[in-house]
């Protein structure tokens, strides 16, 4: 049993499809409660990377460790938020929030406490008994995010959850996800194409390269919160990451 200080360890993750090298020797560690953003050019094997983390298929070499053991969806608490909301249409908002916890067979009292906490943090009181189809896409996505955080996961993986939403909405949602993160102390891996979003949210930014994909840089973002997107320091960091990628 490893006594590693890291919650999540990625060791030499490599994936080949036949002769095509997609991911090449990716290694990084994440501490408990850290918020890490991953940015990279399109076609950098991000989808493959995600599929390996969600165990859709297995790596060619290397592995993903949680608390020192190989990540196992049955044993570990892994939560995912994808680009499209995946609320269960036959359950109300409250039932959706409870869903993940009920699957893990937690005691009812505990579930009540956690779900109430999330509803309060996100201001979802008025939607408690609504069904997903009655809500806007962005609200539905917030439910999914709330559900993920409610599970107090070992690792919370978010893949461009705010996709094509407009800037105003994005800022609001980004502040909300930071609130949830601080409150629950979850370990978060947040994948995005939006560099401003990455610099706004992250304590660390991992910059991926083109295929065969490696980690180009592991950048620490030490700016105080709440961050000001118009401040020169913020702009400098943002420009730096953009230059590193230069994908278009």
């Amino acid at each position: 049993m490893s006594d590693s200080e890291y919650k999540v360890e990625v060791h030499h993750l490599t994936k080949n499809f036949g002769e095509l090298k997609v991911l090449n020797d990716i290694s990084f560690n994440v501490k408990k409660g850290e918020f890490v953003c991953i940015v990279g050019p399109t076609g950098c094997g991000k989808t493959t990377f995600l599929n390996l983390l969600t165990r859709i298929y297995m790596p060619t070499k290397g592995d993903l460790l949680i608390d020192g053991e190989s990540a196992d969806p049955k044993k570990h608490n892994l939560a995912f938020v994808f680009q499209e909301p995946s609320a269960l249409p036959w359950k109300t908002v409250e039932q959706n929030l409870r869903f993940g916890l009920e699957l893990k067979k937690l005691p009812k009292a505990e579930i009540d406490v956690r779900v109430e906490n999330i509803i309060k943090l996100m201001g979802l009181e008025e939607f408690r008994n609504s069904y997903p189809h009655q809500l806007s896409v962005s609200t539905e996505q917030r439910i999914i995010i709330g559900r993920a955080f409610a599970m107090n996961p070992d690792l919370l993986l978010m893949d461009e959850p705010y996709g094509q939403m407009d800037i105003k909405l994005r800022f609001y949602l980004e502040d909300e996800v930071l609130r949830l993160w601080k409150n629950t102390g979850a370990t978060v891996l947040f994948i995005t194409h939006n560099i401003e979003e990455a610099v706004y949210l992250a304590e660390r930014v991992l910059i991926l390269s083109n295929k065969p994909t490696t980690i180009k840089e592991d950048l620490r973002i030490d700016l105080p919160r709440p961050r000001d997107v118009t401040s020169p320091e913020f702009i400098e960091k943002r420009q730096y990451v953009t230059d590193q990628i230069k994908w278009w």
């Binding site: 806007s136 962005s138 609200t139 407009d166 800037i167 105003k168 909405l169 800022f171 609001y172 997107v229 118009t230 702009i235």
Partner: peptide
């Protein structure tokens, strides 16, 4: 650019 963006964004309705 960011100044104009801030000005417009503050004036935009939030469509939750």
């Amino acid at each position: 650019f960011l100044q104009i963006r801030k000005k417009i964004s503050e004036n935009t309705d939030l469509a939750l």
